[in-house]
Amino acid sequence: MHSFFGKQLPVAVAFFSGVLMIITFFSGDQTVADFSQEQLVWVTIVGGFSLLLGVASITRVSLSDVRKRRKGWPYKAVLLIFLVASSLGAIIEGTERGTLYDWLFQNMNAPMMSTMFSLLAFYIASAAYRAFRARTVEATILLITATIVMLGRVPLGELIYGKLPEITDWIMNYPNLSVQRGIIIGAALGAASMSLRIILGIERTYLGRQ
């Protein structure tokens, strides 16, 4: 029973749900299209629940920390208070403008998330100063291109040398584009073969420990 639900059934389900998507692409049949549309709707629903899994996990860990008064528990209590406020606000009142849920997001969550990512500006500046060295020919090419692009993409660069934006456009549209294209093709082939392995049941690591 355990092996059926834990192994055979999941592999079979992955096979059929994957193959259906492939058949739909090639078949013009209306019944197949309807069936696969139904599956897509189902996947959006199940996918939604999987997002809540992380929330359930963080709640469990934080609750346990607070209950056992582990180090830093007051912070976890704050976390739980805001988690509950935002969730209950949404469930009771809704999510549109003017609700507590939206207010918490616009005035607290969004500014904090924006600021967290803006810290990276400082770190990247510091890292560029410390690690960006013209040690080899390759590193020198990297450094020169980065400098041209950094100047060529801001108005000041144009004032320094009028042709910098054009040179930057050329770099982006030829050498950069060709490498990105190579990577896109290579990665796509890799992803396609990985998908095939999943559908055929060769790749099963997504199922977790067996």
Binding site: A14, S17, G18, L20, S195, I198, Y206
Partner: peptide
């Protein structure tokens, strides 16, 4: 936890099916 595998397989299998076509027909 073994019971969750069917749900995961359903989503992952579907994504793999979409992905195979997307990668070859949409990118390569």
């Amino acid at each position: 936890s073994f019971l969750s595998r069917v749900s995961i397989a359903f989503v992952v299998g579907n994504t793999a099916g979409i992905s195979i076509i997307q990668q070859l027909h949409g990118f390569v």
